[in-house]
C-alpha cells in the first residue's frame, strides 16, 4: 500500500483550524483565571486552623488530583443536566477545567505559602500591619512570585488538557480536528497539523507568561533571576 499524504487538501480549511485554536486559547484563559482564584482560595482554606474549612478543601484537592479529567468533565456535564440545568458545552467545559486546575493550583500555592519564612510574618506583625495587609504583601504576592514557574507550566498543561473537552462536543481545536478529519478522510494530516498548532500554542503561552512575569515581578527582573 502506497503512502500518500495530501496536506493541501486539509490546509485549505485553515480558517477552521485558526478558529479552533482561538477557541482553545479562550477556553484555557477562562479556566486559568477562574481556576487560579479557586485554587488560591482552596490553598488559603486548607491552611486555616478551622477543620470545618480545611477539611473540605483537602477533600476537594485530593479528589480532583486523583481522578481523571475525562471523568470529571462527564460528571459535571451529566451532573448539571440531571439537576435540570442547561448550559452550553463551552460553559460546562470552562466549569470542569476550572474545578480541575483549581486543585492543582491549590497544591502549588500551598507550597508557596509554606516557603514564606515565619520571621517575615512576625516582622510584619511587629510593624503593625493589618491582617489583610500581611496576607497581601507578605504572604500572597511573594508566594506567587516563588511558585510562578510551576503555576505557569500547570496552566500550559491545562491548555493541552482542554483537548479532552472535545468529548462533550465543546467547540475547540481538537473538536474542529475531529470534524475536519471526518469530512476529508485525511485523519493523519489533520492530526499532524493540530499537533503542530498545539505545540505553537504552548510556546506562545510560555512566552506570554515569561513576559507577564517580567512585568509583574520587577524585583526579580532586577536580580536577574530566571523566571
Amino acid at each position: 500500500m502506497s503512502l500518500q499524504l495530501d496536506f493541501p487538501a486539509v490546509l485549505e480549511r485553515w480558517t477552521s483550524f485558526l478558529a479552533g485554536a482561538v477557541l482553545t486559547l479562550e477556553l484555557a484563559a477562562f479556566a486559568t483565571v477562574l481556576g487560579a482564584l479557586l485554587g488560591t482560595l482552596a490553598a488559603v482554606g486548607r491552611g486555616t486552623h478551622n477543620a470545618l474549612i480545611s477539611g473540605p478543601c483537602k477533600v476537594y484537592v485530593e479528589t480532583i488530583r486523583n481522578t481523571p479529567l475525562l471523568v470529571q468533565i462527564f460528571l459535571v456535564y451529566f451532573g448539571l443536566a440531571s439537576l435540570g440545568l442547561k448550559f452550553s458545552a463551552f460553559a460546562v467545559a470552562v466549569a470542569a477545567l476550572t474545578i480541575n486546575v483549581g486543585a492543582y493550583t491549590a497544591e502549588i500555592m500551598r507550597a508557596g505559602f509554606e516557603a514564606i519564612p515565619r520571621g517575615q510574618i512576625e516582622a510584619a506583625e511587629g510593624l503593625a500591619l493589618s491582617r489583610l495587609q500581611i496576607y497581601w504583601h507578605i504572604i500572597l504576592l511573594p508566594a506567587i512570585e516563588k511558585v510562578y514557574p510551576a503555576l505557569t507550566s500547570q496552566f500550559v498543561l491545562l491548555m493541552l488538557a482542554s483537548s479532552v473537552c472535545s468529548q462533550i462536543s465543546a467547540e475547540e481545536l481538537t473538536a474542529v480536528a475531529n470534524y475536519i478529519q471526518s469530512d476529508t478522510y485525511r485523519a493523519f494530516e489533520t492530526y499532524i497539523i493540530v499537533a503542530v498548532l498545539y505545540v505553537i500554542l504552548s510556546l506562545v503561552m510560555r512566552a506570554g507568561f515569561w513576559g507577564l512575569g517580567l512585568v509583574l515581578f520587577p524585583r526579580r527582573r532586577r536580580l536577574g533571576t530566571p523566571l
Partner: peptide, 19 residues
C-alpha cells in the same frame, strides 16, 4: 507540547488513514 488525546488520535485514526 501536544495533548495526549491528539497523540492517541494520530496513532489510531491517523495511522489507519494512511493504511
Amino acid at each position: 507540547g501536544t495533548p495526549l488525546l491528539v497523540i492517541l488520535f494520530l496513532g489510531y485514526f491517523g495511522l489507519a488513514a494512511i493504511g
